[in-house]
């Protein structure tokens, strides 16, 4: 039995899945995020981003410093839509 290694715990994405998608040409963090939701859970990539960037670097044979880290947008942690809809600043 093949042993699964979970890389993105929030979205339960395995190392094998990440490698498969990199091999299909989805070799940037943002592309993987769009197809697999890595980095879109509660931790917003704090756990998986470094591991995924290293995998991309390994697959492309470049140093990890040359792999784009992807886009960082607010919010930095999940927020309930309701509190945004209310407009805040009560």
């Amino acid at each position: 039995m093949k042993k699964e290694i979970v890389v993105c715990r929030c979205e339960e994405v395995t190392l094998e899945e990440i490698r498969q998608w990199i091999n299909r040409g989805y070799d940037s963090f943002d592309e993987l995020k769009r197809v697999l939701r890595v980095g879109m859970g509660p931790c917003q990539g704090r756990g998986c981003r470094d591991i995924i960037l290293k995998e991309i670097a390994r697959a492309k044979g470049v140093p990890v410093s040359e792999v784009p880290v992807g886009t960082f947008r607010p919010p930095a942690k999940p927020v309930k839509l309701g509190i945004l809809a209310e407009g805040g600043d009560k």
């Binding site: 607010p74 919010p75 942690k77 927020v79 309930k80 509190i83 945004l84 209310e86 805040g88 600043d89 009560k90």
Partner: peptide, 12 residues
């Protein structure tokens, strides 16, 4: 800068 206090309070 946007902030949240706990889970319910959102302010800037």
């Amino acid at each position: 800068v946007s902030l949240s206090r706990g889970e319910e309070d959102y302010f800037r």
